[in-house]
Amino acid sequence: MTEKATVWEVFIQTKNGLAHKHVGNVHAADKIMALENARDLYTRRNEGSCIWVVKSSEIISSESEDSEAFFDPSNDKMYRHPTFYTMPDGAKHI
């Protein structure tokens, strides 16, 4: 079996001012090749103004099995949402 290539995750900013969004991955030997492969694969129709690549092995993900416990601390804090508050009748622009 041949030596395995490094996998890089690709994030693209579609327009200046927007956040980078994950689009997929590429195989490449180094970061320059990763950027060029990402450009050729994911931006053939002007989809990008900036590309980030990062080695897949460097991504840390939460586990979906314990996502309930992991995200639990935010469940009971309704007061973080504006709809929690009662505004006096007639108050405007708030």
Binding site: M1, T2, K4, A5, V7, G24, N25, V26, H27, L41, R44
Partner: peptide, 29 residues
């Protein structure tokens, strides 16, 4: 351009398939 797109489609799909725990090298093999 059309043929180049097809190469791209192949790569999107290999990427997606690799998330199931099989490498591209194995798939080509």
């Amino acid at each position: 351009a059309k043929v180049q797109d097809e190469a791209g489609h192949g790569l999107y799909l290999y990427s997606a398939c690799e998330t199931l725990g099989i490498s591209r090298e194995e798939l080509v093999q």
